[in-house]
Nucleic acid binder design. Structure first.
Lengths: 386, 386
DNA sequence: ACATCTCATTTGTACGTACAAGCATACTAA
DNA sequence: TTAGTATGCTTGTACGTACAAATGAGATGT
């Protein structure tokens, strides 16, 4: 495709005297510029390697490097170690700087599984040369708005968002719509606002609730109580699976065996209800807890009442968190991908950013993780006397 | 005027192996940046010639040229053939906007107490209108450099840093020095690199070690074993307090009762040693653990050997983490301010930024938190038969 | 089938040499 | 005196070598 004889030489022959004799690297620069402008090298395509150019033009590699690096500085080329040199696409050339910063908004930074999600995303982003902006909403929709406003106050490449109280409405919809119309890529983790069509990475919570009950039923449990937080969709879905499994097993489900609560009540109400249930004549033989964070106090409550876990009561948690192993009774629980989810969210967001298709080229780009049962010591068959 | 011995050299001598990550021309760039921003090279003045720099730093002229040309590209230098290289005047490179973004670099994002520190800082920063950039080093000095480089790739108002393996050397010193000379405010939390004079917020770890032993002695313990991580200064200081308390109480300290380990060994070695100690004829009646994270497996190890906690063995942790309550035996431990430390770090950094006195107007701006004893259930008097 | 390893290719770093070209100063010759 | 020259500095251009580090593809082992 590319001719062997080149203008480079004609130039030298011709202009020696009058033309001040352009330096070779300058001549090469002009030559390459011509290639790009003429379309001989299209945007995004790979430029012949330094060695190849050097040989073809009978230059040393250092001279070629000088030409390349000036073109890189001007934003026309992009060099990647180990891969090669590429013509930067036109639209990228117009922006002076690419922000290379992405934001994550989660409900809680410090607690439970969220640090692990952030960690996974951070590692992936750092390795790809992106910086991570972090903000937390404390599960408060007003703060969510604050966070979004602050994040968007400076240029940003993309956003990863964990919705706040996803089961309720979404007062910050205008923000998200404006992001969509601005072609700012973003995606959601754990859950999505129903009003928005954006890619989402989540655990199949309904399947999780289903699995928890199925496994307990297999072990012989017939009276199972469930404790679910219902102001986010994760809890709602786990509860849905919990009930589904009861229907499936044709087991009656007493209304008092379903305990729902809101985030604000999480430290009091479920434990209170648990005590009542455990003191009742026909007490449940197993608890399904919304997550490990709740499973631990439920276990402690049971033990305070003189019941042994799992001897007298089986308890199943969710999320396979650090608490599962730290707890007195190692928790039987269902997995949450945590770090992997963070990593994958980062990967997909970067693909959206760099692929240019901000809207979401994968139309159904959701990822649904299957929660896996982790057998530890907090669940067993109900004791004989039950 | 300019000294013959140079930081560049000190650095090379010290960190030959680990410092190889930072290319020489980058080191030189940072060095020159320092010269310029510190006023050692005033605007308009002539920079030593390429050959002179090359000789002084024992570099080849080509390498010096690489550094110079990058600085020229950034608009800091101006080169004139035949005359020399000059520092461009300040007004040509004034900063346009105040970034209002600060960075935090910690060892681990996801584990243990670090999320709480980040959380505290995030809350404070958000309320003051700052954005938070987060990066983690995984306790790896090379990643620390990566993080710093990435963070500094765009304008930043300030940095909060938790040192990586603070007990060992600091190969990234050039970065920190260049930050200081560029008047970029930063401070350290938990520990400080000995080589740097920067404000630092930390817990009085020595006092913590001292207190732990004192309280155990008050309860009648005479044989106390301590487990400390010694690749960061926190562990070293806690150990120091541990030994100090023994001297103070005129209690002999058997060498095998001091177990030290590195981060890489944390999941195996201490528990192994604990089992040995507990199986020995004259076993200790109390353990002081480097932190709660270690206290939990120590307790579990004891219980696996049929010992009750605190009946047969008292265990004291550090940091009052979430694990302290989740554990089977609620941990007696010493506090770590966590969120408060994060908040205060953010407050002080903002004061440094907005007060303009980047160097640190509070000459001795350190904050030393006193760890407080939290009485729970893992420590008691030794049993009578001991 | 899947992870792991090896290997060739690419750019990055670092050193070396040599000479050209621009600039300032000192010196020389008309 | 004055113009021109010589000299010695500077940066610029150009070539060369060598090895390091990242990447991706093909081979290999389990």
């Amino acid at each position: 495709m590319i001719k062997k004889t080149d203008k480079l030489y004609r130039n030298e022959e011709r202009g020696t005297a009058m033309n001040k004799r352009l330096p070779k690297y300058m001549v090469l620069k002009n030559e390459l510029l011509g290639w790009i402008e003429s379309g001989r090298l299209s945007p995004g395509s790979q430029v012949p390697s330094e060695n190849e150019i050097a040989e073809r033009f009978s230059l040393s590699r250092q001279t070629v490097r000088q030409a390349f690096s000036e073109l890189e500085r001007q934003g026309l080329l992009e060099r990647v170690q180990g891969k090669g040199t590429f013509v930067r696409s036109l639209n990228l050339r117009e922006e002076t700087v690419q922000p290379k910063t992405i934001g994550i908004v989660t409900t809680y930074i410090s607690d439970y599984i969220f640090p692990h999600i952030v960690r996974g995303a951070e590692a992936e982003l750092r390795s790809r040369g992106y910086r991570l902006l972090l903000a937390s909403t404390d599960n408060d929709k007003e703060k969510e708005m604050e966070c979004l406003r602050l994040m968007l106050s400076e240029p940003l490449s993309g956003l990863i968002i964990e919705p706040t109280k996803s089961a309720e409405g979404n007062p910050n919809l205008p923000f998200y719509l404006s992001m969509q119309s601005r072609n700012l890529p973003f995606l959601m983790i754990n859950e999505r606002y129903r009003e928005l069509e954006v890619p989402c990475l989540k655990v199949d919570d309904e399947l999780g609730g289903l699995t928890a009950v199925r496994r307990l039923v297999e072990r012989g449990h017939r009276r199972i109580a469930g404790f679910f937080k219902t102001d986010d969709l994760q809890g709602v879905n786990r509860l849905r699976g919990f009930m589904h499994a009861h229907r499936e097993a044709r087991m009656p489900l007493a209304p008092e065996h379903v305990v729902t609560y809101a985030t604000a009540q999480k430290s009091e109400l479920p434990v209170l209800r648990a005590r009542e249930l455990l003191a009742s004549p026909n007490r449940p033989t197993a608890f399904v807890a919304y997550n490990d964070e709740l499973a631990v106090p439920l276990i402690n409550a049971a033990r305070e009442l003189g019941l042994s876990v799992p001897g007298d009561l089986s308890v199943v948690g969710f999320d396979d968190s650090a608490l599962a192993l730290a707890s007195g009774v190692p928790l039987t629980t269902l997995t949450h991908p945590k770090e992997e989810m963070g990593r994958e969210a980062a990967r997909r967001l970067i693909a959206m950013i760099e692929g240019g298709s901000a809207g979401g080229s994968p139309p159904d780009g959701d990822v649904l993780y299957v929660p896996e049962w982790i057998e530890r010591s907090s669940a067993a068959a109900p004791s004989a006397r039950e």
